[in-house]
Design a protein around this nucleic acid. Structure first.
Lengths: 233, 233
DNA sequence: ACAAAAGTGTTTGGAGTACACCCATGA
DNA sequence: TCATGGGTGTACTCCAAACACTTTTGT
């Protein structure tokens, strides 16, 4: 096989990208179609790949995410590495990797990143014939995930929950540019697994200086329209 | 060189082990003596090493820490990986690694762990002729550290500061079994970079159910002896 | 008119903060 | 007896939590 001088086949990066559809948290996954003994096998994986020989980890994560989804300028933060010798033991995963990368693959330690993005950003395919889609976090249990990606997603979710405790303004990465207080409250509740009081929440956001009220209301709703806000600075 | 089948020379672990001497935070470092063109060179490094081929990361961290310091049963938590292609560019570091490991070394991605331990635990040498010692965190700037270990220590410190915000009871890992409220307060202040009020602090600890007052006082102090406490459960 | 969600204040308890003096002990 | 840190209480402020009704709008 070729490619040994370009790629470092011992280390990979994986990106856990979260979105919010107004009700639930979603994660961005790549569909993987494998033909195995004339049977079509379908499962999902995180956007990720092995790193280049002369590339640092953060760059690798940005590059790989861009190649697989077309997303650019995403703020990715590293949260954990996964490196058990078993994580690359499934023959289906190995075979797929070796076919895709044209490289002999042994054990891989992967460095995982998380990002929070607006769910309406355009997702495209750039190289390869892969397709990325949003999947509900609650449906993870019933999904086929490659490698140890189920665990990585769970740890990524834990991580952003803690992260959002420390830096609450990161919540706005998940909302559209213009949003209602309800959307913000529901998102906040989904993330913190709470059910907050409407009035207390209004009071709290009222003293967020970085939240500015717009002269617009939402439309297309079959009831009184809510005021729109935006996040500033 | 041999050893290719035993070691995975692409991935390492490093352990940032913190202690508290009653006044300041300390970090455990290995002294490294290199003779280079007939000159003796002395610097310090974190306890760490490349992993074995068939070993997961957590196991590797425990093993390596034990081999270099004799410490056992230390709760290590992974906090970040460091993998820039430049981190193994210093010729002195490469040479030392290749001599020590008897392996050809290229780029290494390291997975970093932190631990908090009681500073009076016995530190021993087991293999190799290394010596581990406690060093003051404030003196880091004036110390020679191998690789990117200065950065790793700084990130490790950031990490435990956040970690202790979330899980305050981890503080007790740094204190002796019996300790005074003053020691606890000083440690708390060092970690959080605050200067807390004595009375308010007493009030706060009074409602910590996991803190039990003993029928003992400290001794050997040239003033009124303080009551001793212990951490329970 | 009715269904559906938006929007709005007050009260209460607990936690954090500021602040100063006497006590116990060893030298 | 003196120097050194140990140990203690009160008042104020601020924030979080509990709690129910009226308003707006589309159908």
């Amino acid at each position: 096989m070729s490619n040994e001088n370009i790629y470092n086949p011992h280390v990979s990066v994986d990106c856990v990208v979260f979105g919010f559809d107004g009700e639930r948290l979603k994660v961005l996954l790549i569909e993987r179609n494998i033909t195995e003994q004339n049977e079509l096998y379908n499962d999902k994986k995180l956007p990720g790949s092995i790193i280049l020989q002369d590339e640092n980890l953060d760059e690798a994560a940005s590059r790989v995410l861009n190649e697989l989804t077309g997303l650019k300028n995403i703020y990715l933060s590293q949260f954990r590495s996964f490196g058990g010798p078993d994580r690359t033991k499934n023959p289906r995963d190995i075979l797929w990797l070796e076919n895709t990368m044209q490289l002999k693959i042994g054990r891989i330690v992967t460095v995982a990143y998380v990002a929070l993005i607006k769910i309406d950003r355009k997702i495209q395919v750039k190289y390869e014939n892969t397709q990325a889609n949003w999947y509900d976090l609650n449906e993870m249990a019933s999904m086929n995930l490659a490698f140890d990606h189920a665990e990585i997603i769970k740890k990524g979710l834990d991580h952003i929950r803690h992260q959002l405790d420390v830096e609450p303004h990161l919540l706005f990465e998940l909302l559209p540019k213009k949003f209602t207080i309800s959307q913000l409250r529901i998102l906040n509740d989904v993330v913190h697994q709470t059910r907050s009081d409407v009035r207390n929440f209004q009071k709290k956001v009222a003293q967020m200086s970085y939240l500015v009220m717009l002269d617009e209301v939402e439309d297309g709703v079959p009831h009184r329209a809510a005021r729109l806000y935006k996040y500033k600075k």
